[in-house]
């Protein structure tokens, strides 16, 4: 049974994702750093720019061993990684396209490869967290909870991640590991959404690929990385939330109010 880290121990959070400028993983890493967290970014994109704010490490997410090795390299000053956040699994998944129009290569790029990466992240994270306990978080788009035209691949990947998070939450709870999902507006997670009319004319952060005609956020503003999402992620990684696992928390300003 892993114990929550003592207050004097730095909580190291590793964010895994595309890592490119504007990608949700990079935005989250930066926002967490500005909250004072110790952060490293594992980047799928080999061209991901370096940052003065956090360590950026290349990461293929090809295997559990590879992810575990990355987490070893992400340790800072001997402080072990306590939290892993899977923020994105590749740009193709987020591209707009009708399911029946996808060719087999597009299908594999958008669904099967990201799902394999997801499994690797879960396996690798478990190998490094199980000795001391910790936290695994997955960022998913709110569109996966409710569906969106042209986004079946992303919704499929995200709902698989949510189901796997529940399975992992059940399996690893006795080791002091919590596994949760945070659902955020899809437009926040990627830079260049290919959806027709993405963002234009909509409420920033809630437009893009989401279904048309949505009500505005109930909180009268869209969530931001720094003021809304990063604090939730940091909080979920902190000892106070060790009683929550298998949950999905929607940080969308109160648009869908689901599940």
């Amino acid at each position: 049974m892993g114990a929550p880290p003592a207050a004097t121990v730095t909580i190291v959070i590793v964010v895994l994702g595309e890592g490119a400028a504007g990608d949700g993983s990079r935005s989250l890493a930066l926002a967490l750093r500005r909250l004072g967290e110790a952060v490293a970014l594992g980047a799928l994109d080999p061209r991901a720019p370096k940052s003065d704010d956090f360590v950026t490490l290349p990461c293929t997410m090809a295997s559990g061993d590879g992810v575990a090795d990355l987490l070893d390299r992400a340790q800072t000053d001997g402080d072990p990684v306590h939290a892993v956040v899977l923020a994105s699994v590749g740009v193709p998944t987020t591209e707009h396209g009708e399911l029946a129009a996808l060719d087999p290569t597009q299908w594999a790029d958008r669904v099967e490869i990201p799902l394999r990466r997801t499994l690797a992240c879960f396996q690798g994270s478990h190998r490094r967290l199980r000795a001391r306990g910790g936290c695994l978080l997955v960022l998913v788009p709110t569109l996966s909870l409710v569906g969106a035209a042209g986004m079946a691949p992303w919704a499929a990947v995200a709902e698989a991640q949510r189901a796997l998070a529940k399975s992992a939450g059940r399996a690893w709870g006795h080791e002091g590991i919590t596994v949760n999902c945070v659902a955020v507006p899809a437009a926040l997670l990627v830079t260049a959404l290919r959806a027709p009319g993405a963002v234009a004319g909509g409420v920033p952060g809630t437009a893009g690929p989401d279904r048309p005609g949505l009500p505005p956020p109930s909180l009268d503003r869209s969530p931001s990385w720094e003021s809304d999402i990063a604090p939730v992620v940091a909080s979920l990684a902190a000892p106070g939330w060790t009683g929550v696992t298998g949950a999905t928390i929607a940080v969308d300003g109160g648009v869908w109010m689901t599940p």
Binding site: L99, G147, A152, P153
Partner: peptide, 10 residues
Amino acid sequence: GALRGMAKSL
């Protein structure tokens, strides 16, 4: 689970 996501979007 993936099937549920796919079905909702489809």
